[in-house]
Write a protein that binds this DNA or RNA. Structure first.
Lengths: 337, 337
DNA sequence: TTGTAAGCGTTATCAG
DNA sequence: CTGATAACGCTTACAA
């Protein structure tokens, strides 16, 4: 690897002059600058950012810790983040947690060790009010932006999230408007604030409509596809069966829809289904599916802006941004009796 | 930030002993090791990997350069890569090219500047037989693993790809077996080797069946959804119209299917469609769609193995691994007249 | 405008 | 087993 020193040997110039010339400092004569740049180019010089970082105490590195890049929502958020980071001269380290607190901790520690300038965290939600890594992060003053709702253990950081309560309310209200009588609610475990909020939205809509909240219609299962599949099947077997289901989780919605397909049930003729947008091509999956569309790109963009801002002025008070969702209505033409 | 030096001040020990103790060297007395570790823990010491990298000349950083993490195939490949990298103690920088050669070059240069131990490249295909960055990469001996088919400009590197010729052949043969007479072929521009191979597979199947290859049935359009939509619409208007279409590109397939949905045409009753797996939940999109399933996880896993191997023994001859695809038949029950 | 000295936080090397 | 010394490749601060 070509070092500044090697160029100096050939150019008979001080390393300092080279360093400044290459970074385009203005206290170097244009002639020297041009010659140096050309020589560096020709010798294939590539600056070592680790060395630069060591002395400037900045890495131009950002980290993002998410459950899995496989999640279509997160994919888009990360895409937007990468785009903005790249534009601002930052590189992005992506780490997975697989919804496992230990992996999350390891990933965060590694980022700390890399001295990233800041990190985006989509927290693995836990019931405990405190988590060691997050306390450390706070104590260190590491620039962090939360991707998702703040819970007690990760409070105090700026963040971007979506108004899940309103979204859950809107979805439920939509089903009520179509005349559905028995609306089930399907989700994973209720540790995550977003799941709680969606449920609260569901409850509120029913309450406002003067309907009872039937606890047997509220089901929790494993948050992945098979969980959705099984839960939907068990709902269909219930007596009386629900005439509509609000699936409050992406992956479960896929499983639930697969179950309906397997049973030969059509949406919305045989049963009403609403969910959060499953995939970007939700239209294709079920042209008749009413969903809540999440502003994924905007989420990533806002998070990036927030983090860059925090990095440049760490003193500012942390702001929590809540983005609105959009209700995409597709089955309004099929009201229930 | 706590440095080794700070611990030394409190521990009255040489920095060197601390360094060794923390890394669990065996030439440090267990007593000291334990005490040092405890003290470091308590003071919140986190090693600075930039400094470590500077002296050890290794960063435990890997880079992956892809068109966009948004692509569901690449998402899965990157997921697998991240998993293996993480296990082996590597972090992963993800960079986008947006299929733009200039962005690709910038991204690669940045990774070079970060002194990554190796990189995964999903090349932006061009017609030129040479590309500067790739020449540099070769000259530098940077450990690189190609994600995708090698083209002249990126030859000489190990890589992982899929047998697109056989896959294209199988898809076409499937349609022929169903009795389809006029099979159209839809893809983006033919710069990428995989597109060429899929077309070649299509041609070979027709030839073997003694069918003419009608050039008017081979269409190229923009490789994204709208391109697929428009191309499909124009195909439907052709006289005589095709009775089946082989869509050789993920995103275009989505557009094409949307077009059919808009036209009220059913698959496979009204028209036969085969394509490469659009999304992981292709079953949901069209339960009746026959697709080629790509071994995305295996691709990532193999690529990671290849790169780690290359990093540890850079001398070995570069190997090109070709993974088999799987034909998932869904519409065999509907033979054509 | 150019050059010199010191140091960023760590580890390799080798002497106590 | 422990510790002093010299790098690693670069930039900040300041002197020529």
């Amino acid at each position: 690897m070509v070092r500044l020193k090697d160029i100096a040997a050939r150019a008979c110039r001080s390393i300092m002059t080279l360093s400044k010339a290459l970074r385009g400092a203005r206290d170097v004569s244009p002639t020297t600058r041009a010659r140096v740049k050309q020589l560096a180019e020709q010798m294939g010089y590539v600056p070592n950012s680790a060395a630069q970082g060591l002395v400037t105490r900045t890495t131009r590195l950002l980290g993002v810790v998410i459950s899995s890049i496989t999640n279509p929502i997160l994919t888009r958020v990360v895409h937007a983040i990468e785009e903005h980071a790249h534009e601002s001269g930052y590189d992005l380290i992506v780490a997975h947690t697989a919804n496992n607190t230990e992996r999350e901790e390891v990933s965060i520690r590694r980022l700390l060790s890399r001295r990233v300038d800041g990190m985006f965290l989509s927290p693995v939600y836990r019931i405990e009010p405190e988590a060691r890594v997050y306390q450390e992060l706070r104590a260190r003053g590491t620039p962090v932006v939360l991707l998702g709702h703040p819970a007690p253990f990760c409070a105090g950081f700026p963040g971007v999230s979506v108004d899940d309560l309103i979204a859950g309310y809107a979805l439920t209200k939509h089903l009520l408007g179509l005349g559905h009588q028995r609306i089930a609610f399907l989700s994973g475990r209720l540790v995550s604030p977003w799941a709680q909020e969606r449920l609260e939205g569901y409850r509120r809509a029913l309450r406002e409509a003067g309907r009872p909240v039937d606890p047997t219609l509220i089901r929790h299962a494993d948050f992945r596809e098979p969980g959705g599949f099984e839960a939907m099947r068990s709902l269909l077997d219930a007596h009386p069966a629900p005439d509509a289901v609000f699936v409050a989780n992406n992956l479960m919605a896929v499983g639930a829809l697969e179950c309906l397909a397997a049973e030969g049930m059509r949406v919305p003729e045989d049963i009403g289904i609403v969910c959060f947008d499953v995939i970007p091509w939700a239209d294709l999956v079920r042209p008749s599916l009413t969903t809540v569309v999440q502003p994924t790109y905007e989420l990533g963009r806002t998070a990036a802006l927030l983090l860059l801002d925090r990095i440049s002025s760490p003193t500012r008070a942390p702001s929590l941004v809540t983005l609105p969702t959009e209700l995409r209505v597709r089955d309004s033409s099929v009201p229930r009796p």
